[in-house]
């Protein structure tokens, strides 16, 4: 079954370039502003969008994305509102893949079957659930795959060769390689550091490999895009949202330019990357 994600990576291969994956938290800093940013991402150069589902206890995230989640929750963010953002987005854009990213509990409480039905109906393409390792595949991964969603797994520097097959089994769409041991927004890894890891993953799978955690500048993105199939940027974009807010947390004029202009810079960084295929 071919999905929007498969199609997007096929297109990127044809263009001979890596993709840019951008992350924002749904509802940050408020539902309407967040929707407008989401809507502007493809034109700014995002090839794939990761949309964060806000959660009170994001144990794998650094301060930037923690704060984004709390801003969203404070402004009324919820699973229902996250899904309706996707529904609205799909009325304008039927090509850009959307991957929901977050933690399992809000999905579990929403109800796995209802969630999958509503996510598909909204136009969601894939899921990245940080706290569902392959050991808990029965929970959501298998039902999601059966429903026709991609389930994108994180591979990390601690995922050794013995474990990789277990992680890649039931993974679809792409593999998200976490370039460092740590939380989102922490120190960055360089292309030379991650090349062996990408080589290693590619020995086990034909899926595209996106690399994230710690990519902060267009130069970082260019560097990573020279060896990966896509570069993922989250905290640095979310920081642009945070710095566009006034003292009361309200968005200031120019927020869209500030955020989407940065995404455009990241996109041109990625576009400049000279492919040194792994």
């Amino acid at each position: 079954m071919s999905t929007r994600i498969d199609q997007r990576f096929a297109d990127l291969r044809k263009e001979g370039r890596a993709g840019l994956v951008t992350f924002i938290t749904a509802g940050d800093p408020d539902l309407e502003t967040s929707y407008e940013i989401l809507k502007g991402l493809p034109q700014a150069g995002a090839d794939i969008i990761e949309l964060g589902m806000p959660f009170t206890d994001p144990m794998a995230d650094g301060p930037s994305i923690q704060a984004a989640g709390l801003r969203a929750l404070k402004a009324g963010g919820s699973m229902k509102n996250t899904l309706s953002m996707v529904t609205r987005f799909r009325k304008h854009d039927n090509a850009t893949p959307i991957v929901l990213m977050g933690y399992y509990n809000p999905i579990y409480i929403y109800g796995v079957d209802t969630f999958l039905k509503d996510a598909l109906a909204a136009g969601v393409d894939g899921l990245i659930i940080v706290d569902l390792p392959p050991e808990e595949d029965e929970e959501l991964c298998i039902p999601a795959l059966k429903a026709g969603l991609n389930f994108i797994r994180l591979a990390t520097p601690t995922t050794d060769d013995a474990r990789l097959p277990a992680v890649l089994n039931n993974t679809s769409g792409f593999v998200y390689y976490v370039s460092i041991t740590g939380i989102t927004g922490a120190a960055s890894a360089s292309a030379s550091h991650i090349t062996p890891a990408i080589d290693r993953i590619k020995r086990h799978t034909d899926l595209p490999v996106a690399v994230g955690f710690g990519i902060k500048t267009p130069e970082n993105a260019e560097d990573i895009a020279s060896v990966a199939d896509a570069a993922v940027v989250g905290s640095a974009i979310v920081d642009r949202i945070a710095s566009s807010l006034d003292a009361h947390g309200k968005p200031q004029d120019g927020i869209y330019q500030h955020v989407l202009g940065f995404v455009a810079e990241l996109a041109s960084g990625v576009a400049k990357a000279k492919k040194t295929p792994a």
Binding site: M59, A60, Y104, V130, D131, L132, P133, E135, E136, R153, L154, A155, T156, P157, T158, T159, D160, R163, V167, V178, T181, G182
Partner: peptide, 8 residues
């Protein structure tokens, strides 16, 4: 229910 980094 932990992140992949912690699983090993």
């Amino acid at each position: 229910y932990v992140a992949e980094t912690l699983m090993p």
